[in-house]
Each structure stands twice: as structure tokens, then as C-alpha cells.
């Protein structure tokens, strides 16, 4: 399989609309014939990333690369950055506001879930400039 590159814009502002990019990616991964559990892992990571970008950064862009060995998802935003990454990785820690919480988000599980369902997670963040979260999901051969 050649490397396939996909780019999805993530709209900011409206949490209720979040999930469009993840839904589209999921359909594409299905068409590529990837194993169901791999698609599930990638979809959850992408959706959590989308939610984070909508809550904290007014949207951004998701870049997805698929090759024979792995799926790489890069979630890139120009938001406020994460001041304390270690804290942000703790289950239950959240800085999300009341609107997100009313909708069932803001449980402090976003990044922990991305870690749980990926084989590798890296966070490149600068306060005041933005954050890029990269997850890799390996495809068993």
C-alpha cells in the first residue's frame, strides 16, 4: 500500500458538530479494508482530538497518514497550548468549561483515552502558540 494522506479541517466553536472529521476518516479507513479494531482505535483517538480542539483551541486541522504498517494522526491547532502536559495526561484533570461538561465532555479523559488506544502519543505544545498531538496506531502484520 502506498502512503495515503488525508487532511480534515476541524471547525471550532460548536461542540455539537464535533465528530465530522472522525466520521469521515472512519469511513475511509473502512474502505481501505483495515481491521475493525484498528479502525476503532483510530476513530476514538481522532474524535477525542477533535473534541479537544473544539473545546480548547477553536478548531484546527487533522492530518492522517496511512501506510502498510501504521496510521499516524496529527492534530494541529493554534490554540493556547498546554501549560502542564503531565497534568493534562492525568485521568480526571480537565480545564473544560461548563458547556462542554453539560454535553458530557470535560471528564479529563481525552488525552488519556488517546494514549490508551494508541501505540505512541507525542504532544508538542507551546503556550500561546498551539499544540500538535500525534498518535500512532500500528497495524498488525
Amino acid at each position: 500500500m502506498e502512503t495515503i494522506k488525508l487532511i480534515y479541517p476541524v471547525e471550532g466553536g460548536d461542540l455539537i458538530e464535533a465528530g465530522e472529521a472522525s466520521s469521515k476518516m472512519k469511513l475511509t479507513l473502512k474502505k481501505l479494508g483495515l481491521p475493525q479494531d484498528i479502525i476503532r482505535k483510530a476513530s476514538i483517538c481522532m474524535y477525542e482530538g477533535e473534541i479537544n480542539m473544539v473545546i480548547h483551541a477553536d478548531g484546527g486541522q487533522a492530518e492522517v497518514e496511512v501506510d502498510m504498517n501504521q496510521i499516524t494522526i496529527r492534530m494541529i491547532d493554534s490554540g493556547p497550548g498546554i501549560p502542564d502536559v503531565e497534568k493534562a495526561m492525568q485521568e480526571g484533570f480537565s480545564t473544560a468549561g461548563p458547556t462542554a461538561r453539560e454535553l458530557g465532555f470535560g471528564a479529563g479523559m481525552g488525552l488519556p483515552n488517546m494514549k490508551r488506544y494508541s501505540d505512541d502519543l507525542t504532544i508538542d505544545t507551546t503556550v500561546g502558540k498551539g499544540t500538535t498531538v500525534t498518535v500512532i496506531i500500528k497495524i498488525p502484520q
Binding site: 455539537i16 465528530g19 472522525s22 474524535y47 454535553l103 458530557g104
Partner: peptide, 15 residues
């Protein structure tokens, strides 16, 4: 008991 639109997305992603 959540009944907003995000429930559909979560159901879909979590399969």
C-alpha cells in the same frame, strides 16, 4: 441518559 447529538458520534467511534 445523555440525549444530545454527540451520543451518535461516540456510539459510532466506540463501535
Amino acid at each position: 441518559i445523555m440525549s444530545n447529538q454527540n451520543v451518535a458520534a461516540v456510539a459510532l467511534m466506540a463501535d
